[in-house]
């Protein structure tokens, strides 16, 4: 009995001791510990992703040869179409560069694309986040946009050595500016993620919509990135504006719900757009690199 009591007492003392120790540890040590834990956790996350891939593989194995042949044929067609598109895009890119140089117009933000597989999804109503299998070692930096095709998925929030955490468009940590399809005057509107209520679908909101805005007749208005903020390239689709935009209490601005461009719960593969030059916000988040701040002023 006494031994049990003493054991319990020792446990409490140890808890208090380690909590206290954690609080007084220098931030570098704490950061190292966090990183170490993330790296320790990374193989498990990879394993989860690989397991899912394996399950998918076995699922495909069970398909009939006819089905696979049909799928391969469809894929070949898509590939051919994409080849054509790549070719025309290449021409457009060259023309764009030529015109920019001719007009002495500054080049838009350049990005390097890194394709990443999704390991884990945390798409509960609170944490709208995914973990991808690319990290610092692949050049991923915090704040980088994450897309699927021309659709915005979210932004990188935390980067580890081999994995990164991505705040989805519906995450409360996500915000960006957008233009609305059909708005001739290109008013800048504000898109931000909202934490959903328990058991309700998470959503993003579009606010500061001008009162005179009318969605294109018979269409669902697309919400597209402005490219003004220096983070997202312009013209990417954030989603569509749900019908029935609400006026704010003052009747001067409208707000509406955003349906994300991609079904975020089933996303498997994404692309991380890494800006060639770090943004000011990125430099601000890494105070150690103050020299860079001057360089980019």
């Amino acid at each position: 009995m006494d031994n049990n009591r003493q054991g319990a007492k020792a446990s409490y003392v140890a808890l208090v001791f380690f909590t206290g120790l954690w609080m007084i540890l220098p931030s570098a040590v704490r950061r190292f510990n966090r990183e170490a834990f993330a790296e320790f956790q990374a193989p498990a996350l990879h394993l989860v992703g690989k397991g899912r891939d394996l399950a998918r593989y076995w699922e495909l194995q069970s398909r009939s040869p006819e089905e696979l042949v049909a799928a391969a044929r469809d894929l070949a067609r898509i590939n051919a179409a994409l080849e054509l598109k790549i070719h025309s895009l290449d021409d457009a890119r060259k023309e764009n560069t030529r015109l920019r140089e001719m007009l002495r117009y500054p080049q838009s933000t350049e990005f390097v694309t890194v394709v990443a597989r999704v390991s884990v999804r945390e798409t509960s109503s609170w944490w709208q986040r995914i973990i991808i299998r690319k990290g610092r070692s692949d050049g991923v930096r915090p704040g980088c946009p994450v897309v699927f095709g021309d659709r915005v998925i979210g932004r990188v929030s935390v980067v580890h050595l081999t994995t990164s955490e991505v705040d989805l468009v519906t995450s409360p940590g996500f915000r960006c500016t957008a233009f609305l399809e059909g708005d001739d005057q290109n008013h800048v509107v504000h898109v931000s993620g909202r934490a959903g209520l328990a058991l309700s679908a998470p959503r993003a909101m579009v606010s500061i919509i001008p009162l005179g805005y009318n969605p294109p007749a018979g269409q669902i208005a697309k919400v597209m990135t402005t490219g003004l903020g220096g983070v997202f390239p312009s013209g990417l689709t954030l989603g569509t504006l749900e019908t029935g935009v609400q006026t704010t209490s003052e009747k001067h601005m409208l707000t509406g719900a955003l349906t994300p461009a991609k079904e975020l719960s089933f996303i498997q593969e994404v692309s991380v757009l890494i800006p060639k030059y770090p943004t000011a916000g990125e430099i601000l988040l890494t105070p150690a690199d103050t020299g860079k701040a001057e360089e980019f002023r």
Partner: peptide, 15 residues
């Protein structure tokens, strides 16, 4: 102001 003023655009030659 650092965030607002800065640009991560590479200026074209001669501009």
């Amino acid at each position: 102001w650092f965030v607002i003023d800065s640009t991560n655009q590479k200026a074209a030659k001669g501009t």
